[in-house]
C-alpha cells in the first residue's frame, strides 16, 4: 500500500497570518434527514460530538460534526480512523435513507491563524467576519474568490478551512496573497 500524501504536503506561508496546509484529515460526508433519530444517534455515537445546530460545528477531541446543509453533515475524525468510523456509520444507518462516504482524499484542509486571520478571509469571502457575527463554533460554506470552501473557527484567532483537493494550490495561493506582509486593513 502506498503512503497517503495530502494535497500540498504541509505547505506553509507566514504573512499577516500563518497559512498552513495541515495534512491528512479524515472526512466523511453524511447525507440524510438530520432530524431523524437514526441519523442523529449514528453521527453522535461515531464521533462522540454533540449534534450541531444549523451553521454550527461541534467537536470532541480529534473528531467533530459540521453542519453543511439541512441534510448534510461533514464528519471529522483522524485520517487513520476513517474505515472504522465509516463502517460504524454504515452499520448504524443500514435501515435508513442515508449515505456515508469517505471524502478524506477529495479535500484539502488549511489552517489560517494569527491576529489578522479574520482579515485574510474577509478579503476573499462575501461573509461578515466581525467577531460579533462569526465566532468559534460557527461554520460557513461560501465562495473563496472563485471556488467553494467551508471554514470554521477553532479559537478566536484560528480558522480551519476545507476546499476541494483539485483547487488546493489555487486556495493556497489566494490565502498567501491575502496574507502578504503589511497588508492589514485593520477593520476588525
Amino acid at each position: 500500500m502506498s503512503e497517503p500524501i495530502s494535497a500540498l504536503n504541509h505547505a506553509r506561508f507566514d504573512g499577516i497570518a500563518d497559512i498552513a496546509e495541515i495534512g491528512l484529515q479524515g472526512m466523511i460526508t453524511l447525507r440524510g434527514d438530520l432530524a431523524a433519530r437514526a441519523v442523529k444517534s449514528a453521527a453522535t455515537k461515531a464521533t462522540g460530538a454533540a449534534m450541531p445546530g444549523a451553521n454550527a460545528i461541534s467537536t470532541k477531541d480529534d473528531s467533530g460534526l459540521c453542519w453543511m446543509s439541512p441534510d448534510e453533515l461533514l464528519v471529522l475524525c483522524p485520517y487513520a480512523a476513517v474505515p472504522e468510523v465509516l463502517a460504524q456509520l454504515q452499520t448504524a444507518l443500514a435501515g435508513s435513507h442515508a449515505l456515508a462516504v469517505n471524502v478524506s482524499d477529495a479535500r484539502a484542509v488549511f489552517r489560517v491563524s494569527g491576529p489578522a486571520a479574520r482579515e485574510v478571509l474577509a478579503k476573499l469571502c462575501p461573509v461578515d467576519l466581525s467577531p460579533a457575527e462569526f465566532e468559534p463554533g460557527t461554520i460557513r460554506r461560501t465562495r473563496l474568490a472563485q471556488v467553494p470552501a467551508a471554514f470554521w473557527m477553532v479559537d478566536n484567532e484560528t480558522f480551519q478551512l476545507v476546499c476541494f483537493r483539485s483547487v488546493a494550490q489555487y486556495v493556497f495561493d489566494l490565502l498567501c496573497v491575502a496574507a502578504q506582509p503589511n497588508s492589514e486593513v485593520g477593520v476588525f
Binding site: A54, N55, P126, R140, R143
Partner: peptide, 12 residues
C-alpha cells in the same frame, strides 16, 4: 430560507 445565511448575490 434553509440555512438562514444572508447570502451575497455572488454566492447564489
Amino acid at each position: 430560507p434553509y440555512c438562514g445565511v444572508q447570502a451575497d448575490e455572488t454566492e447564489l
